[in-house]
Design a protein around this nucleic acid. Structure first.
Lengths: 289, 289
DNA sequence: CAGTCTCCGTAAATTATTTTCGTATCGCTT
DNA sequence: AAGCGATACGAAAATAATTTACGGAGACTG
């Protein structure tokens, strides 16, 4: 019952006419529907108040009051702004809503859909690794690779990202037992990424792939953190998959930090101290610029 | 109005006794408080129903009904985990919820809080620029700078990102009238970023800053896209401000693309065509790897 | 020591929600 | 095609929830 709006979509066809009208209204303006009295909602949908009560019951909720709560909760950050984004360009606010929706959805999906056990194993491998090589190529994956380095070095880990296909293979060849190799690739099929993963594993490093489940790269890795591609029709709209990858890296870093504990805290404190001393960071702001 | 629970914390000391009792109850069980009738809430707090109504009014909300909506929104999954993590680590799912909440919030805030007119002007400047220099330094800003290049070159624009403080200044010196210089800095106070912005403007380029409003960098720029730092108490948790910056860049790129229109579409098609030809991208996937 | 202000409860008024009940409509059977 | 039963749905009544009006108690002020 987490996502009332999804349940609503699903049940839509089976609903009687009056309740379909209600469903359509609620789906299009969930925020509004959750905050007005039952009579106003009924009037705007062209039905009577009892129909609204019956509608709630049919959705498995025993009162209109609870329905409001469920509806408000269903309005997850992005979902509130559900925008089909089709056809003509509808203006900056519509774009903003669609982007936010896509990004929120990508993040929830990535987090919810992760394989708990595999993820924990990846956390353990990273936290205890001697060195960590992060590799990603192409616009999105190289962004994620650099961000992974950025997150991990702050914890005092020996993480290095490279986005150079030739160099990655050479670096992978220097890894050994107790090291980790994190390879990031959305499609999981480019030769350079596969070679890098294979080489790292050959020399005894733990291979972790942040990639599409089932891809050739995933098959090669010891541990897989799944990241699915999002489908989209509009060639001009940026893919939201990056957000899924970023939030997974954030979670990885957070969990690694928790596992490392005080030494990580001390490293972060040092970084902050230096930034403050030089005057680059405002005293209350986040680390780095 | 985004975070009722925070507002509640803040106002707590100034509240009369009966309302403090209410505030404490609401803060400790927001979900419950949002779903029970006013009489039940009042009874459990040991106050009368009218006191609850007055309590809502004092918080700036004109009815108990709206208070419930606000409370439900504030009580979204992530927020409950705003624990300082100084104590025990509550597990990966709690971290995931907190990260997701922070990221979603950062994105909504960034989009909602943007200055519409200034943003449009920045879009126009980028879309019509001869060359675009993107500059950012430090973990977060360099990530954003590279991502800006990544988004813009795909539209056929001559965008170049640099994260090298010395090189940026030299590059800025090559800009001229009709060019644009996008400088990204979360604190907006590092000398390198200021020098770069000043030089670019000196030579006639339009200076656009993605930075904290009111910062020295913002003062120097022609156009400001505001990005506020998020406060957070947990040194080990990554800052969510990056997400705000990313979504703003996505919006910038989307709006620029819409303004450019078909030529941008053609460039994207070409990129996709080449990726498909070489077999790097799956036919239905997003652009790039 | 009034006067005034704020807090907060009781009771009344108002408003919102749910229940009850009756009619209409549709599909199915004979 | 008429009869039957089920479902849909609104009107009105009943109930519940919320807000307003008002007044008393206590604290602070001149």
């Amino acid at each position: 019952m987490t996502d009332l709006l999804a349940a609503l979509d699903r049940q839509m066809p089976d609903l009687p006419p009056a309740e379909q009208a209600l469903a359509a209204l609620v789906a299009s303006e969930p925020d509004w529907a959750a905050s007005v009295p039952i009579t106003e909602l009924a009037a705007r949908a062209g039905v009577s108040p009892p129909t609204v009560t019956r509608f709630c019951r049919r959705l498995g909720i025993d009162s209109f009051a609870r329905f409001r709560v469920a509806l408000t909760q269903a309005g997850r950050p992005g979902l509130r702004y559900r925008q089909p984004l089709g056809g003509a360009h509808a203006g900056a606010d519509a774009s903003a809503a669609a982007l936010l929706d896509g990004a929120s959805r990508a993040m929830s999906d990535a987090l919810d859909g992760r394989d708990r056990a595999g993820f924990d194993a990846a956390v353990a491998a990273v936290a205890s690794a001697g060195r960590i090589l992060v590799f990603g190529q192409g616009g999105h994956s190289s962004l994620l690779a650099r961000e992974a380095e950025n997150r991990l070095y702050r914890l005092g880990l020996a993480a290095t990202a490279t986005v150079d296909g030739g160099r990655a293979l050479m670096q992978a060849a220097t890894l050994g037992k107790g090291d980790a190799c994190l390879v990031i690739s959305q499609a999981g099929r480019s030769p350079a990424t596969l070679d890098c993963m294979a080489a790292a594993r050959d020399y005894g490093a733990t291979g972790i792939a942040l990639t599409r489940p089932g891809s050739p790269l995933a098959e090669l890795a010891d541990r897989v953190i799944g990241l699915s591609l999002d489908e989209h029709d509009d060639i001009l709209r940026p893919s939201a998959a990056r957000y899924g990858g970023l939030i997974l890296l954030d979670l990885l870093a957070t969990e690694v930090a928790a596992r490392i504990g005080d030494p990580a805290r001390e490293t972060m404190r040092r970084i902050k101290h230096q930034m403050l001393t030089v005057g680059l960071a405002p005293p209350d702001g986040p680390l780095g610029d």
